[in-house]
């Protein structure tokens, strides 16, 4: 079947079996190999992407279900949270082998969008589905806290410099970040 969707902001269409996992469509058909295979049965989080803005395990997402939707992968993730997460990740050298990290970054970005100032417990809940055998967890936790500070600073700067265009959500998030 022909499946059309928005991938990292661009319209794409591919021919795939309706039940083909999105993971293989991305990796084999579209050659975006940043999204990784770890288990294929929703047990590790290595294949995490955004579908219509929320995290999904692409290894168990049928290709047909994304027809007409939008998909964001590690190659295309952007915005203040993504920038903050990736910068924090690099700064404290979170990755070891790095294989799980595309998935970790995607889940962390989603967490930060939902909870701009996550507690350790929020992080445990939001990230426990992403396994890292090298055990970069201590740094993942730290980097998410660092990124939260960084992202709220950036939002504040953005809000200050362009108040008229800042959305209500953006301003609310910034003040929430500042008060915590």
């Amino acid at each position: 079947m022909k499946i059309s969707f928005t991938l990292n902001g661009n319209a794409v269409s591919v021919n795939a079996e309706p039940d083909a996992p999105l993971l293989w469509v991305l990796r084999d058909e579209l050659r975006l190999t940043g999204t990784k295979f770890g288990c294929g049965i929703a047990q590790c989080g290595a294949c995490t992407v955004f579908v219509n803005g929320s995290t999904r395990r692409s290894c168990v997402t049928p290709a047909s279900s994304i027809n007409g939707g939008s998909v964001t992968t590690i190659e295309g993730v952007n915005g203040p949270e993504a920038e903050a997460i990736q910068a924090a990740w690099e700064k404290i050298d979170v990755p070891q082998c790095g294989y799980c990290q595309s998935g970790q970054v995607m889940s962390a970005v989603a967490l930060l969008k939902a909870k701009p100032n996550p507690t350790d417990e929020d992080i445990d809940n939001g990230m426990a589905g992403n396994i890292c055998r090298c055990a970069s967890y201590v740094r993942i936790r730290q980097a998410i806290h660092d990124a939260a500070d960084l992202a709220s600073n950036r939002r504040e700067i953005a809000a200050d410099s362009n108040v008229s265009e800042a959305t209500n959500v953006g301003l609310a998030t910034a003040s929430e970040g500042a008060s915590a």
């Binding site: 190659e75 990736q86 690099e90 979170v94 990290q101």
Partner: peptide, 8 residues
């Protein structure tokens, strides 16, 4: 590090 946090 940069390659590993961007999927490259």
């Amino acid at each position: 590090g940069a390659e590993k946090v961007t999927g490259r």
